[in-house]
Design a binder for these strands. Sequence first.
DNA 1: CTGCATAATTGCAGCGACTGCAACGCCGAT
DNA 2: ATCGGCGTTGCAGTCGCTGCAATTATGCAG
Lengths: 217, 217
Amino acid sequence: MIGIEGRKEGLRERKKQRTRDRISRAAFDLFDRQGYQETTIAQIADLADVSPRTVSSYFPAKEDLVFESFGPFEEKLSEALDGRPEGQDTMEALRQWIFEERKVWEAKEEQLARLHRLIDLDEHLSSIHRARIHRLERLIAEGIAQDLGLPPDHVEPRMAAAAAAAVFDLLDDEDRDAECSIAGVDRQFDLVDQALTFVSGGIQALRAAGKDRDPAR
Amino acid sequence: MIGIEGRKEGLRERKKQRTRDRISRAAFDLFDRQGYQETTIAQIADLADVSPRTVSSYFPAKEDLVFESFGPFEEKLSEALDGRPEGQDTMEALRQWIFEERKVWEAKEEQLARLHRLIDLDEHLSSIHRARIHRLERLIAEGIAQDLGLPPDHVEPRMAAAAAAAVFDLLDDEDRDAECSIAGVDRQFDLVDQALTFVSGGIQALRAAGKDRDPAR
DNA sequence: CTGCATAATTGCAGCGACTGCAACGCCGAT
DNA sequence: ATCGGCGTTGCAGTCGCTGCAATTATGCAG
């Protein structure tokens, strides 16, 4: 059945990928032109030259067409935080991770801008986007709680994580304003740095000040 | 045509309200028993003894059945922040508002707990919930930005607002663990106090430290 | 009490997203 | 060339939701 296990898994796979791309492309084309809600699966199928059933089988939910483009965000952050070097705190790991990912984001800059504009325009998409960011926030909260030796649902780690997770919104906003791309990238760098420093400072202060109060929770 | 304009608008209104309640009750009954997704509009209609069409006309979206129970949250917070006394900062206004609302929440404690458990169990509901909280966050961010004399999309106000908005999650968690209701209420008080103090401290520190750096954005 | 204007409720037809199932056709390993 | 399996498709059906038009209930004027 299988020749060499580790083979490129051949022509079939590639064709499948191309179909997936065609569908995705068609979708964004229509989304940009008519909006998300206004675009039907049937239209996408037409433009991609496949049957509607096929679209649904590649992308079980219409939203998947949009959010797949972000890539496996959560997993990546999770790995980055889990695999951080001994002694490095979560905030620093987060900062580093963002600067790593920056390269990827720059490459997809234009696409990301489109994406965010799309999401902003649709309430349903916005909701999902919020939920996704919240999941990142939870990861960060876990990390910080660990750093501070507190239970993961403790107050401060969660406040700090919320603040930290807000950098993603900041970055998203930069994407949205596509024109800023001149000095944009460097400003993003500054922004993140500033923001995360802010939060770290908060955590420090907290660590010192919060000791005399018995921990809630 | 109209007798006394300012009348209680009478019996019709009351009946309508009762119908709305019946539908809502039926819905929660089924949601609790079978889950949100698993419950169909038709079932709700049956149990409430109305036609499916009627359910949809009272609650245009299925989710509305769930989130209406929260009341006009956003509007209330917005008013509270807008109408805060001269000289009082946003954080303090928020704190006060939460302590005001606490009475209302206590009254609906059990219902809120059900609500949160329901929301946690369903991805779609969770998304919407996140979006709702995010809207509160934006209100807070605006307020803080005003306090600090910064544009509303500036870094620090948003970080601080994110942290502040996280108190809602804290409160929600308390609701979720319905058993804690013994010391629960007071602990909520403590929690909020602690949390908001934390954020306020952050803002103070920020105000002092951030002055020498030119404002990003 | 009667009739009437208005409002609430309903049924119906239809759209769009999505799913399970079964058939069909094409790729590629043998 | 053949055959097994996978990608693709069509079909039928479910569910949420909407617009429209008919029907029923309600409250008020006379």
